[in-house]
Amino acid sequence: MADLKVKLGSLALANPITVASGTFGFGREYAKFYPLSELGAVITTAVTLEKRMGNPPPRLVETASGILNSIGLENPGVDYFLQEELPHLKDSGAKVIVNIAGRTVEEYAQVAAKLATAPGIAALEVNISCPNVREGGIAFGTDPQMAQKVTRAVRDQWDGPLIVKLSPNVAEIALLAQAVVEAGADIISLINTLTGMAIDPHTWQPKLANVVGGLSGPAIKPVALRMVWQVAQAVSVPIIGMGGIMTVEDVVEFLLAGASCVAIGTGNFWQPTLARDLVAALDTYLDSRDLANVQMLIGQVGKGGAPWHSCV
């Protein structure tokens, strides 16, 4: 048994496997497959100030080794979450990380303030990929100054570990990472989905009612890996890496690129037990290479030969 524990600043996790926001609901459905306490943490679907209905259907298109979605942050709102979802999630024994989203800086702050009053939340993850209603619909996550404003607003309301989830739809991911760290982010998670589109060549119609959506799944893994690596070079805070993870080899690659923890997203749809299965698979990977702990992988890409080659 290798030591799988990781510390992301003050956020201590039993293992480095968690689940990506929006793919796991509030854990209720997947708790039927395995105890959620077996994961390092559960990251919830985005919670907003008011209930949201989401986008019209169709909201999903399958693409080559990936999916495009335009769910539109459908969620029951923060008050409902606190009353009806947080209790069972805490009772499951899972570390709870709540993902938050908003249309304005004030909305993010209000959601964070409400969550700050509830015990049992391990960390907040701020989704900055939302369109900013006040500033003409440009996503908070593509402008370093707007990303800082959101981060500061949440920081003012929340004393616990603060994760900011970066959008990959930018030219220089490192600039965004540096900006949010400067504004008070303790941890960075990445990547959110890549903006994409699909068209039906027979009907000439866009395949999503929302026309554009977010691409996820194995198709985006190389992009995600590159961005995790770039951010790891640019900032010193811990990173939660995600984007198309399906196998233990994928997990290892993200850790080598510099992530301290990974999130399983679209993979949950392929195999509902995937995240839990990868905890055991990571342990096996480490044991088979005589690696005592998971720390020995983090950020080690290109640094020396792998230990099992050293005796050849």
Binding site: F24, G25, L60, N69
Partner: peptide
Amino acid sequence: KMACGVGACLACT
């Protein structure tokens, strides 16, 4: 169109 099939992802709303 469904992704998870178990009620978590809200693709088939």
